[in-house]
Nucleic acid binder design. Structure first.
Length: 612
DNA sequence: CTGGGGAAGGGGCCC
DNA sequence: AGGGCCCCTTCCCCA
């Protein structure tokens, strides 16, 4: 696999030019990096999402891991990374990401000399020592003191309140936007990143009405997902809450111990992998960037490459150039896709990528109040020691919940095995997986290749099957069929078990406990308290909303061991596995037809009962 | 062209 | 909060 860890590391070393044997093709490393950056701008093979403030950046795990041990430790476990917004702003991260992919420090937006102080802070936090060293040199040259990157100039961000007024736009950065951006309001221009940047909400109503409706990443061009495809039908408003931890598996507390690197130019402080970093500190800042390319315009990149046409790296593009998107609607192609990228969710290739219309704002009232202004304002935390680990994510923190316990430490989310999501607090030692970068999310075991991961995932399915067989022949299936029979004949029968003293005041439903009743009563509310940060759709339950957000971001932790197809829900995988096993537990009592999905049986029964 | 079936995405909601 | 299940819906294939 061209984007495999080894290939990448090789590329990285080659890029330095001071390690390893001379290359036969001197421009090879440049071309490789160029291709990677191009793929980034297209979202092609991007397998990680980095959230910074209200921006989402797509990137390649390998590239990030090769650039920073900090990223390396993060991407090992997650497809979604949330960075401490006190340490790095979205605009700064944009520059850093550009730097990682180009070796150049690109002008900010509007075009201006990079704020090296800010960059230094962020680079140190992200453990990009060579970028930090470059920033220090720049600062020295400019005669500016450094080491106070968190000062009032701070992160170069507008105030929180201002950022909250950012348009509710899932902003993909298409080439056509580049020019128009120049005159954009600050919020918007701050919001616009590169092609791989999407913007989550955090918007005031003014922002919504003034700047237009959310834009779904149409046609899968660059999108992280789609707006709701059905059901809600775009019924959501465009107001959002910020700071949702979308990835239960994403450690809110990165293991960074970036402090010392802030003031050190000493290469000895670099870990091994960092020594191999591609980030040539001598790369001259160039007044334009491969980050704003004409998509697909590899040869028009500002980098001066020799013989790009001849480069075998063109193969990186994949068969037939950019990945098919809409064509993925074809089921067979979907499976093909799944086989190609079994180890990482592909958030960008979904059959339902097309925007299904604007998000009306009719449900928006009162949502402005829901924006956690207090949290955001309070989190500036300028006085926090530099080396201190980043904060957990916003609301979770406010609620006194430490996400690190949830996901980073306990690993309970990872599965029954109590996945050891251990993040080291100092230095970088190999996490338990070493170079086994393909990690089974349910049990947190690492594997050196996607094939081995798939084989491992298959053992999960086999274990599951074994348990089923031992515990009674296909309990799930038969139970499901029974439930179906119940549902069709006596829908309320399932409520019979146990006392249910808590009765809904609005309907006849009863519940075993008060919490469930409260939860249910929300379904009677006109206002839905949990808005999606991306499309603004409203939900009555936070869990439903976070699940919905995962579908936006393409987080699919559950992989089929047979075909590699991935799902957002375990239940979907269980359902899908019947495709491979041939199990059809749902039988029509009228005609004997059997189905793998209960819902298809229901559809089928309608056919029986529908007036002809 | 149409209808049925297979497979999958997404939301609601209870546990 | 997360899992699980139900329902609606969509898309595709095929007869």
């Amino acid at each position: 696999m061209v984007s495999g860890p080894l290939a990448l590391r090789w590329c990285v070393w080659a890029g330095r030019g001071d390690m390893g044997p001379d290359m036969e093709l001197p421009s090879h490393s440049k071309q490789l990096l160029l291709q990677l950056n191009q793929q980034r701008t297209q979202g092609f093979l991007c397998d990680v999402i980095v959230m910074v403030e209200n921006a989402v950046f797509r990137a390649h795990k390998n590239v990030l891991a090769a650039s920073s041990v900090y990223f390396k430790s993060l991407v090992l476990h997650d497809n979604l990374i949330s960075l401490d917004t006190d340490m790095v702003s979205s605009a700064v991260f944009q520059q850093i990401l550009d730097f990682i992919y180009t070796g150049r420090l690109l002008p900010g937006e509007p075009p201006a000399e990079p704020n090296f102080s800010t960059l230094l802070t962020a680079a140190s936090y992200l453990q990009l020592p060579e970028l930090a060293a470059l920033c220090r040199r720049k600062l020295k040259r400019a005669g500016k003191p450094f080491g106070s990157g968190r000062g009032s100039a701070g992160l170069g961000r507008p105030p929180r309140s201002q950022r909250l007024a950012t348009a509710s736009v899932i902003q993909t950065r298409y080439p056509g936007l580049v020019d128009g951006r120049k005159g954009a309001p600050q919020e918007l221009s701050q919001a616009k990143g590169s092609d791989d940047e999407l913007f989550l909400g955090g918007l005031s109503q003014e922002g919504v009405h003034g700047l237009g409706r959310p834009v779904c990443p149409g046609s899968g061009e660059a999108g992280l997902g789609s707006c709701s495809t059905n059901g809600g039908g775009g019924s959501g408003s465009c107001e959002q809450e910020l700071g949702l931890d979308l990835s239960k598996k994403s450690p809110p507390l990165p293991p960074a111990t970036p402090g010392p690197s802030l003031t050190s130019d000493d290469p000895a402080q670099l870990s091994d992998s960092q020594e191999g970093s591609p980030l040539s500190t001598s790369a001259p800042p160039v007044a334009n960037s491969a980050s704003y390319p004409e998509l697909g315009g590899a040869l028009s990149e500002p980098m001066e490459l020799e013989g790009a046409e001849d480069s075998p790296l063109c193969l990186l593009e994949g068969p037939g150039g950019p990945p098919p998107r809409k064509s993925l609607r074809h089921a067979a192609r979907k499976k093909e896709w799944a086989r190609k990228e079994p180890a990482a969710a592909s958030p960008f290739e979904r059959r339902d990528m097309a925007p299904k219309g604007p998000c009306p704002g009719e449900e928006a009232e009162g949502l402005g109040d829901r924006v956690p202004n207090g949290i955001l304002a309070g989190s500036a935390a300028a006085g926090r020691p530099f080396g201190e680990p980043p904060y957990p994510c916003k609301e979770e923190e406010e609620n006194g919940k430490d996400g690190s316990e949830d996901s980073a430490q306990s690993g309970s989310e990872g599965g029954p095995a109590g996945a050891p999501y251990v993040y080291r607090q100092e230095g970088y030692e190999p996490v338990p997986y070493g170079d086994n970068l393909y990690v089974c999310i349910p049990c947190a075991k690492g594997f050196p290749s996607s094939e081995q991961l798939n084989a491992h995932v298959e053992t999960h399915a086999e274990e599951e099957l074994l348990i089923k067989e031992e515990g009674g022949a296909y309990e799930t299936g038969s139970a499901g069929a029974d439930e179906e029979a119940e549902d069709l004949s006596a829908p309320s029968a399932s409520l019979a078990a146990g006392p249910r003293p808590f009765k809904c005041s609005a309907c006849e439903k009863t519940y075993k406990d008060a919490a469930t009743l409260r939860q249910h009563e929300k379904t009677h509310w006109l206002a839905r308290p949990f808005p999606c940060g991306i499309c603004g759709k409203m939900f009555t339950q936070r869990g439903t909303m976070t699940r919905h957000m995962r579908s936006h971001l393409g987080l699919k932790p559950f992989a089929c061991g047979e075909c590699g197809m991935r799902f957002t829900r375990q239940y979907r995988l269980t359902e899908h596995m019947r495709v491979h096993s041939g199990e059809k537990p749902y039988e029509c009592q009228l005609c004997g037809g059997k189905f793998t999905q209960q819902r298809n049986l229901i559809s089928h029964l309608r056919m029986h009962t529908a007036p002809s």
